[in-house]
């Protein structure tokens, strides 16, 4: 039944000049164009505009006068503000630092977990996958409150450390950068574990067995075979935690101290406290340019390497 339907679909497609390949490109492309590119164009336009008290709260960029004249009110002021006020630079750098450290820590914790999952008996693996993701089907805020309960001065962690005699005075962790790292690593751990697992899972150990047969020790086999082959998964994992962490707002707001500068927080206050939609948009556009360009370049490189291997 599947094949009959399938043949009919292909016949219809051919008549309309649609190929499977074209369709596979067109469908996600069309969705992203409609619900990302169009909204993005609005934000881009907004970033060249100016605040006013009205609905919507910014000046229109293009104006058609009643006499048929056409004026463009594009202003670069918002971008100039970004360059001249050091608040923004320091926020971007602060975000990059926090995202980079969190990513490194998450990879160090996540890789062994994913590796362990991929080595587990096949019947356990789906259960392990679900075990990793299940905590994240509780409410985010509740998890953050649970973390607060663990990290605060009279919290579980300090209680455990003092009763073990490791520390005398309770540590101040909550409302510091360390709490932010813990929060980000905790919140994004499945985004690190699952892609790495997905890339490790396919090794049905034949390669490693061959290596062992040839006298290669397990650790050596890991470094020379497993790790290099799982690198695309590691790259994906790094992307999936690093990028959202740069723009993160809720975690630093609830767990971090007031003095930590992150671009997500700066943008939030620009948007909600200053009600300056244009400047907030400019902050976001700058962030997009700063991050998307290297990612696209990286992906090209990756695709090229894949091609190279093939030939």
């Amino acid at each position: 039944m599947r094949s009959r339907l399938h043949h009919r679909l292909i016949a219809v497609g051919k008549r309309l000049g649609i190929t499977g390949r074209g369709l596979a490109i067109a469908v996600p492309y069309a969705w992203l164009a409609a619900f990302f590119l169009v909204p993005f164009a609005i934000v881009l336009k907004l970033s060249f505009s100016e605040v006013v008290i009205a609905i919507p709260p910014y000046l229109p960029l293009f104006e058609w006068g009643e006499d048929g004249s056409f004026t463009v009110n594009a202003r670069l002021d918002n971008y100039i503000t970004l360059f001249t006020d050091d608040l923004y630079w320091r926020s971007y750098l602060g975000s990059l630092k926090i995202a980079a450290i969190s990513t490194a820590v998450a990879l160090l914790i996540g890789y062994p977990i994913a590796y362990g999952m991929s080595r587990a008996p096949a019947a356990w693996r789906p259960v392990l996958v679900v075990l990793v993701i299940l905590p994240f089907w509780t409410s985010f805020l509740i998890r953050v409150y649970a973390l607060i309960g663990i990290l605060k001065k009279e919290g579980l962690l300090n209680l455990a450390l003092t009763s073990l005699g490791l520390i005398r005075e309770p540590l101040t962790i909550l409302n510091t950068d360390i709490a932010i790292y813990i929060g980000i690593v905790y919140s994004y751990l499945p985004f690190v574990v699952l892609p790495i697992y997905a890339s490790l899972e396919r090794f049905d150990l034949t390669l490693l067995e061959a290596a062992a047969d040839l006298g290669c020790r397990p650790t050596r086999a890991f470094w020379t075979i497993t790790l290099p082959l799982s690198l695309p998964g590691v790259a994906a994992a790094a992307l999936l935690i690093f990028i959202p962490a740069v723009g993160e707002f809720v975690i630093p707001d609830l767990l971090g101290g007031s003095e930590t500068l992150m671009i997500g927080k700066t943008l939030w206050s620009e948007f909600f406290n200053n009600r300056d939609w244009p400047v907030a948009s400019a902050v976001a556009i700058a962030l997009l340019v700063l991050l998307v360009a290297p990612i696209v370049y990286f992906q090209r490189l990756q695709a090229k390497v894949a091609h190279g291997e093939r030939w």
Binding site: I53, I55, P57, F272
Partner: peptide, 29 residues
């Protein structure tokens, strides 16, 4: 305020604080 300023929020009765409302009145909300 964001919902009100974007327009067509769909709400019939809203309860802003007065400091915010004052600016919203000027914006014609």
């Amino acid at each position: 305020e964001t919902k009100l300023l974007a327009g067509k929020s769909g709400y019939d009765v809203v309860v802003p604080s007065a400091t915010f409302m004052s600016r919203q009145i000027k914006a014609g909300v």
